[in-house]
Write a protein that binds this DNA or RNA. Structure first.
Lengths: 333, 333
DNA sequence: TCAATATGGGTAAACCTTTTCTCATCTTCG
DNA sequence: CGAAGATGAGAAAAGGTTTACCCATATTGA
């Protein structure tokens, strides 16, 4: 605890000046290989660790970025966070996580705190791609990247490609030979819902049946009841808007003696492990690759911080179909 | 972006020296109330924000703490994180979140990064209270607090009180007049499982039936089947080790025509909203108050950082029973 | 009226590292 | 053998803030 070793200690122990010590450790300047080695060895022996604040004071960088989110539950933000961290730790950059709920005042406080800490950049994240965080991040003295949340028109925004993801899911059902596919999804006021429905309709035609409800297992249950009581044929494929709905659908089918995947194939969305892999049978579902999204967001904000040119606008990252058992043996299998 | 305003700017704009400006803003030193006010007003107008690195360089504090976790999913860590953040933001302290999975190398990298950043303290957190993080945090130059994870013998450790929480749950069932209560819980190698079972047995006697399995809905389902096929009376109260098991139990009961809560009262554990409030009927369950745990952890690590005396050892924080509908109308209702 | 004491505010050092000059020594070539 | 260039390494400044120390001026008491 008492007095960390400073570069001054390293220098005197190695018998050189602090300038030489600094250059030796940073690989800059010219000096005998022997000198450089000796300094490095001494530094290692002393457990020298350069003071980030002194360094930051000089370079005007903190090697720190802030992640702002209103996803208090963390279901979307945590994978994004993991990706950011993974990408940036190699560059010695750490991440401040600030959960601001939906409170503008709390948001402002956290943004202020970040700016005080001289973050090199801020990543804004959320729980849906068509809502904004309750804070104004324009005109900040640091670069801002929006990941999985809506940003202003001229911002750098990264989102997952809902259309493409849904397209993959429905295409998979079609390739399995499913003929009558319905889409059970969440509330229509979600952009994700509309995008996924568009992809669905593009593949099955405008006659495709889209049932909008909530993001819950209950709604999945209820949707199955509705499909059965409507008198029409039971569909042989159900594309669900998220894994919870899919779980409800699968449970309801089982309760009614409809076999998944024999009688009906079910696809979910989100690849929320804790739901998808525990459902019986485990769900085939769409993964939004949030970790990759986070990685890209981290690298992008860093590039901006370093003044490198970055293309502005919305960048959509592809989703990926995760095949489990809720659709039966796939054509690729 | 170009050149933040420094205290120098404030000083010259207010017509005082930087020393006076600094003292005016920090409320120290002696000066005319008028002078102090004027400096503050000018600082506000210029949007002055003291450079945290310069300040930290001097005070040898970063106003930063690190949160280390292997709970990649965030179910336990996120509430803890929210509590820490909530408690510390008022002191101007921000939180680095480092998700290290279970990788010792990654853990070491992140700890190094934190120390480089001169964190004022580290909070270690996890997903169970009887496992350690795969990193050695002893002999660090900064204080460490363990929250919801096991720490060394002489450490400061905060955990939720599993025994007390389970006691409340079973007591509730007894007060509702339930006579034959069983306990369906997770794997016996969890300390939480043993502690909760102890509390259960203390109340129902040594004859109490404890069914250990997994933390999954499937196990909840299976446990109900086992209870029914064993030939004995169906219990009228089931205390479950977590909300997922409880959900499985409730679902299985419904499938078999056993009414919850009329025929059997079910209590869960964790108050994991997304499961507890969506189960039909919504679960009465035990909340571990992880947010409060986080808040305490934050305040404690800060106290240590400031050299204040802190009692070492394990501190157990009380759980709280959240009453919903899976037990029927309560005696208090 | 003069010395002693508050009172208000300025000067400069300190925190630790990086980096720009600058200088001394060694090598090499004419 | 002398000068120019290459090479290695040191001195010092810079970065923004806090604070110990110091110095004026105003006030008080004798």
């Amino acid at each position: 605890m008492a007095g960390r070793t400073r570069i001054y200690d390293v220098a005197s122990a190695a018998g050189v000046s602090i300038a030489t010590a600094s250059r030796a450790l940073n690989g800059s300047g010219r000096m005998t290989a022997e000198t450089r080695e000796r300094v490095k060895r001494v530094a290692a022996e002393l457990g020298f660790r350069p003071n980030a604040m002194a360094r930051g004071l000089l370079s005007n960088r903190s090697f720190t970025v802030g992640l702002l989110t209103n996803d208090s539950y963390g279901r979307f933000t945590l994978p994004v966070m993991a990706g950011i961290s993974e990408a940036l730790i190699d560059c010695g950059v750490s991440v401040f996580l600030c959960a601001i709920e939906d409170d503008p005042a709390l948001g402002a406080v956290h943004v202020d705190a970040m700016l005080d800490k001289q973050v090199d950049g801020i990543i804004a994240s959320g729980k849906r791609i068509d809502r904004r965080l309750p804070v104004d991040l324009s005109n900040l003295p640091v670069p801002v990247v929006y990941a999985f949340t809506e940003g202003p028109a001229d911002s750098v925004t990264l989102v997952s490609d809902d259309f493409q993801g849904a397209h993959e899911a429905v295409e998979w059902l079609l390739r399995l030979g499913r003929k009558r596919i319905v889409h059970v999804t969440g509330p229509e006021n979600f952009a994700s819902v509309r995008l996924r429905a568009q992809a669905y309709r593009k593949l099955v035609g405008e006659g495709g049946e889209v049932l909008c409800g909530e993001w819950s297992e209950l709604w999945g249950h209820a949707a199955v009841e509705r499909l059965l009581s409507s008198g029409g044929d039971m569909p042989d494929g159900i594309f669900c808007g998220n894994d919870q709905i899919a779980r409800g659908v699968v449970d309801a089918c089982r309760e009614r003696g409809i076999d998944v995947p024999r009688d009906v194939s079910v696809v979910g969305f989100d690849n929320w492990e804790i739901v998808a892999s525990v459902t019986r049978p485990p769900l085939t579902t769409v993964d939004m690759n949030l970790r990759t999204l986070g990685r890209e967001a981290g690298l992008t904000v860093l590039a901006l911080a370093e003044g490198k040119p970055v293309e502005r606008g919305i960048r959509k990252l592809p989703c990926e179909l995760i095949v489990r058992e809720s659709c039966g043996a796939g054509p690729r299998a």
